[in-house]
Design a protein around this nucleic acid. Sequence first.
DNA 1: ATAGAGAACTCTATAATATAGAGTATAGTA
DNA 2: TACTATACTCTATATTATAGAGTTCTCTAT
Lengths: 101, 101
Amino acid sequence: MEINAIPEAFQTKLRLAVLSALLTGKKNFRDLKQITGATDGNLGAQLKKLEEAGYIEIDKAFVNKKPQTSCKITDFGRGQFREYVEMLECLLGQAENGQKS
Amino acid sequence: MEINAIPEAFQTKLRLAVLSALLTGKKNFRDLKQITGATDGNLGAQLKKLEEAGYIEIDKAFVNKKPQTSCKITDFGRGQFREYVEMLECLLGQAENGQKS
DNA sequence: ATAGAGAACTCTATAATATAGAGTATAGTA
DNA sequence: TACTATACTCTATATTATAGAGTTCTCTAT
């Protein structure tokens, strides 16, 4: 991954928080709202963006007779996350060696 | 570092690109412009933000009889960068183990 | 001394986008 | 039939990144 091609997904607290939360497993709308502290409208909008970009999958169903929106990170999303971290690690690694500041 | 407290510095390609470039050593305005592809105005604005936030130091001087703005990452900036990467690594690590997707 | 060039801005307007919050749809329950 | 909970959608606002014109400063050439 190139430094100049960082996916938009990683460019706001909220989307990054959502992805991070999903790394450890499925979460529903309610969970994500509580974890991130976002409002309904904003969370809905950002989830939609993440879905459109292929980072997450959104599944709607009725659970316990209540609507439940379940979100899950995709393999693509997980891969991008890993690549992003690896890129940063690499940059940091270069810095720790060749200190010519 | 908390997922909900990610510094603004890491929330745009441009600022992240600048910080990354500075990790490996001092760079002047011209270098950074070339590396990032940003316009003068935009680069100037973002450098100012990074400076105000204490991530970088900007030094102005005349070199070869031409003005030269030299930018350098601070210890604080380097530390924040490391913390940020470590936080992401940690999240990713949790995910690789307890897969309950 | 005057004009021009290069570097690095500053300033302002525009564009993009995150966010809040009101309103809406749906299914279930009383 | 009214009422509740969930999860939106839609719209307006606020924030912020970006572009680009104009400005300042120093030196060089005329």
